[in-house]
Design a protein around this nucleic acid. Structure first.
Ligand SMILES: [Zn+2]
Ligand SMILES: [Zn+2]
Ligand SMILES: [Zn+2]
Ligand SMILES: [Zn+2]
Lengths: 143, 143
DNA sequence: CATTGACTTGTTATTCTATAACATAAATAA
DNA sequence: TTATTTATGTTATAGAATAACAAGTCAATG
């Protein structure tokens, strides 16, 4: 949160009340949340209760690297490393729905090479893996 | 299409009329199509005209590697290399909405390393990059 | 200070996407 | 044949996302 404030101040963009609260909600939950779920929390706090209110706040956070969108789940999660440029990888467990944000430099390099080779300008990317976390795999193996 | 027939026959799974037609539709269009768009085409050919008809056929194709789902676009595209295991990368142009399927072994390796390190079992993955194709970048630079 | 223009928030209404639940039909296995 | 599975179709509902408009805020300019 402090990082987010420093960053938005530095970039001269406005972390307004709704946006700030939306980020707090994502940070507090420690998991990926759907837009409608975020909207519900926002409206409880006195903000608007119509879809665009949540979508705009979340779009802003994603736009400025403060949150990520998990396409596969139609959900959003706060970024673990805002500011710092990275190619995040989301490991999504189909057993318990937990999402882990990770990433490696070698992956980043591989994607950069690919973009260069195809002359495609990559502006944003999403790497999402669906599978089983250690706990859920153990549970599945046991059954 | 011939590849798909050989593969389904070999695996003992059924490429039924709806599924076959759905794949043909994806192949004919040469682009990513939304489920509702596919449904429309299917119903024109005498198949059911309710959402589940399209979703089930598309799920089958994805399940068996005959098509990919482009999460960011909520759309589906026929696979360029069915049968052959690969970690596809989709380059999605935000200018013209075209989708290119590509991929590299180094990327595949980087993801495998990551999975091993985190003890996460990857079952399926999606790598999607949003940006500009050469043509659209040229157009944007000119303006 | 007053006004302009950019940005932000809120609301209404609509569209697109996806799934649950059930009934019927076809294919496969016993 | 009979039972079991698999696939198809329909109805109804839930969930996600956007378009379009109105109103408010804010900083800057004259
Ligand atoms: Zn991040
Ligand atoms: Zn799990
Ligand atoms: Zn493919
Ligand atoms: Zn383009």
């Amino acid at each position: 949160m402090a990082t987010a404030e420093r960053q938005t101040a530095a970039e001269g963009i406005r972390l307004t009340p709704v946006r700030r609260r939306a980020l707090e909600i994502l940070l507090e939950s420690h998991r990926a949340m759907g837009a409608c779920e975020v909207l519900e929390r926002l409206s409880q706090d006195g903000f608007g209760n119509q879809p665009p209110v949540a979508y705009r706040a979340l779009d802003f956070l994603v736009e400025h690297g403060l949150a990520h969108r998990i396409q596969r789940l139609n959900a959003y999660a706060a970024c673990h490393a805002p500011g710092q440029p990275h190619a995040p990888v989301f490991l999504i467990c189909r057993g318990c729905d937990k999402v882990a944000e990770t990433g490696t430099d070698s992956l980043r390099g591989a994607l950069d090479d690919l973009a260069r080779a195809s002359d495609f300008t990559i502006e944003r990317m999403a790497v999402e893996a669906l599978g089983l976390c250690p706990a859920c795999r153990a549970a599945e193996d046991a059954s």
